[in-house]
Design a protein around this nucleic acid. Structure first.
Length: 108
DNA sequence: ATTCTGACGTGGG
DNA sequence: CCCCACGCCAGAA
């Protein structure tokens, strides 16, 4: 989108994630036209960690695992937020991942 | 300027 | 099925 920054585009997509739904870094990266550069999405999230307007807890890896939970305020915060939205998470692994998975290309 | 690492993904053994 | 290595771009030391 804007050459302002890759992160801004990531924030926009992440912010569009519906309630009780999750997505993967690769899906966002692919949507932005940077397939394979999923790491950059995570990097953008890192910058977004300072911003509270981006529900980064709804973004997990393609495995459905809360890989970035360590980057939140607490270790249980990410899982807690997801469970509060109706997403069942066990041992950092999202249950029924396919059902809660939100694909920008398909549903956006 | 060079090197390493990082909230990932995919492919191969 | 599990483990290892490579590719990606960007920022920090």
């Amino acid at each position: 989108m804007d050459s302002e920054g890759f992160f801004e585009a990531v924030y926009a997509v992440v912010h569009k994630i519906p309630y009780g739904r999750v997505t993967s870094y690769g899906a966002i990266a692919k949507y932005l036209g940077a397939p394979g550069s999923a790491r950059m999405v995570g990097w953008a999230m890192n910058a977004c960690a300072n911003r509270n307007d981006v529900p980064a807890h709804r973004v997990v890896n393609r495995n459905g695992v809360l890989t970035g939970k360590h980057h939140f305020s607490g270790i249980n915060l990410m899982q807690q937020l997801l469970e509060e939205e109706g997403v069942q998470v066990i041992d950092n692994q999202i249950q029924n991942f396919e059902a809660v998975f939100w694909e920008p290309f398909r549903e956006l």
